[in-house]
Computed example of a mutant assay.
Amino acid sequence: MTLPILETKRLRARPFTSDDLADLVCLHSNPVVNRYLQPTNVAWDISTVKKRLAGFIETQELMGFSKWHLSTRDGEFVGRAGFSLYEKTAEVEMGYTLHQHYWNQGLGSEIAQALVEWFFENTYYSHLLAFAHPENHASKKVMIRAGFEFRETRMVDGMPCEFYQVLSPSCQKLAVPA
């Protein structure tokens, strides 16, 4: 069993393993869950899920962080949450995707706040990105609650996205209000 990297009051996050394929297939088989992840809100096919899972595992090995397997303290799979490299700018992006039946329970805010804390306690990056489709009001609220501030709107894989960022605590001390 892989040990958790991060724990909150209700959640545990641990690196993905190849044994987690069925969990990810189940998560991304729901087009409603995927509606803001790509221009077409369709279920991901097995080859897409396998590629994503392999990428999560490889990124964890290379960078020491990635998107992680998210479960309740009792072990029920909730979704995925963590970090990835936004290659267009070489910045790190925080993201999460939860099973639909876990929405509106405060779990997004709980994991987002914990991820921000973990990131700045365990890395030397100056800031962290997060982005969401302009119509994904729930995710934008979660980002703001976690300390992110709006930065810009740009296209990501053919979809408009609103980018937010949060500065590291040491950078926040240096930032001068406008």
Results as ranks from 00 to 15, higher is better:
T40M: 06
F83D: 00
F131C: 03
L62T: 02
Q60G: 10
V78W: 15
A81S: 14
K51N: 11
D45Y: 05
H28C: 12
N30Q: 12
W103S: 01
I46D: 03
L98Y: 07
N30S: 13
Y125W: 13
A81I: 11
E93Y: 05
V25Y: 12
A130S: 09
T123G: 02
N122M: 01
V49D: 06
E121L: 07
R80L: 09
H69W: 07
K67R: 15
S109N: 07
F77S: 10
A81T: 08
L85T: 02
A114P: 09
V42N: 03
G95P: 02
W68H: 13
L27Q: 04
T72W: 11
P134W: 04
W68G: 07
A112P: 06
G82A: 12
L115E: 08
G108H: 10
V33C: 11
H101T: 07
F131E: 02
G106D: 04
Q60Y: 15
K50V: 00
F119Q: 00
G95N: 07
Q60D: 12
N122V: 04
S84V: 06
S71N: 11
Q38D: 07
Y86H: 05
H133P: 02
E61F: 01
L53Y: 10
N41M: 11
Y96R: 13
E87P: 01
A81N: 08
D74N: 14
T59M: 15
Q60F: 15
W118C: 03
M63C: 09
G79F: 10
E87H: 08
Y36K: 08
G95E: 07
S109K: 14
W118Y: 14
R52M: 12
Y36G: 01
L129N: 03
Y96K: 09
E117Y: 04
F77D: 13
S66Q: 09
G79M: 04
D23N: 15
K51G: 06
R35S: 02
L70P: 07
G75K: 08
I46M: 02
A132P: 06
L37W: 08
H99I: 00
Y102L: 04
L107S: 06
P39S: 08
F56H: 10
Y36Q: 05
F77G: 06
L53K: 08
H69Y: 05
Y86G: 00
A112Q: 03
A130R: 02
D45E: 09
H101M: 10
L128F: 02
E58Q: 14
D74A: 13
R52P: 00
